[in-house]
Simulated scan of single mutants.
Amino acid sequence: MGVSRAAVNNPFATHLLALQLSDSVMSKQREVLNNANAVLKVWPETASIIVVAFGPGVEITFADSPLRQQVDSLIAQNVEFDVCMNTIETLKRETGHVPVLNPKAQQVPYGVPRLMELAGKGYVIVRP
């Protein structure tokens, strides 16, 4: 799956966090954003944060997400948002159309293998 954009943007990161988002409930999505913001406040120079969205959690990466402004703000601070394209393909089969994605989200083939890859690179996996 390659090197993450977050790691490229901060090659000296020592605080590695992957946030799992597999829930469409707004309170869970907000909690993921709040967790990312908290880590950035504590370790602004040394954090590498990647949000991995799959299953119902991919909604946070939709272009029309009600949390789009907060997502874009975190992306501007080098937080990476990965969207599971397997989930997007499933949505396409079920609904007949592909949702418009935030163009700043990183497309990954699968969410769970992405989390496993990140764990192997030393990222702490948190599911709020």
Rank of each mutant, 00 (worst) to 15 (best):
K41R: 15
D23W: 01
L115N: 02
Q29H: 00
C84G: 03
D72H: 06
V42C: 08
P66F: 01
I50D: 01
G120M: 09
V108Y: 02
N35E: 03
T61N: 13
I50W: 03
V58E: 03
F62K: 09
S27M: 11
V83F: 00
P103S: 08
Q29V: 00
K104P: 03
I50V: 14
F62T: 01
D82H: 08
N86G: 13
V58H: 05
V25D: 14
Q77N: 15
R68Y: 06
V108H: 02
D64Y: 05
L91R: 11
A36H: 00
V32N: 04
V32C: 05
D64L: 02
N102Y: 01
V108I: 13
T90F: 07
E45R: 15
V42N: 11
G120L: 09
H97W: 03
V42F: 03
K41H: 11
V112Y: 04
E45Q: 14
G111R: 03
L115Y: 04
A38G: 08
T90P: 02
L115G: 06
Q107W: 06
D82K: 08
V71R: 10
S73A: 15
E94Q: 13
G96Y: 01
L74Y: 00
C84P: 05
E80C: 09
E59Q: 13
V124R: 14
E80T: 08
G111Y: 00
S27G: 07
K121H: 11
V112Q: 08
Y110S: 15
D72L: 13
V71E: 05
E31K: 12
V112W: 00
V39S: 10
I88P: 02
T87F: 02
V108A: 03
N37W: 04
I50C: 05
D23L: 09
S24K: 10
E89I: 07
S48L: 07
P44V: 02
I49W: 00
P66W: 02
T46W: 05
N78R: 11
Q107P: 05
A36M: 02
I49N: 01
F81C: 05
R68P: 05
L33T: 01
P109W: 01
K28R: 11
A105P: 01
V42W: 02
V98F: 08
A76H: 11
E94R: 15
G111D: 01
N86R: 09
S65K: 01
I75V: 15
V83I: 10
V112M: 09
E80Q: 14
P56A: 11
Q77E: 12
T95I: 05
N78H: 12
L118D: 02
G111I: 04
V98T: 15
M85D: 09
T61H: 06
P109C: 01
V83W: 01
K104S: 13
T46V: 09
V79A: 02
V83H: 00
G55P: 03
N78S: 14
A36Y: 00
G122Y: 05
T46N: 11
E117D: 11
I50H: 06
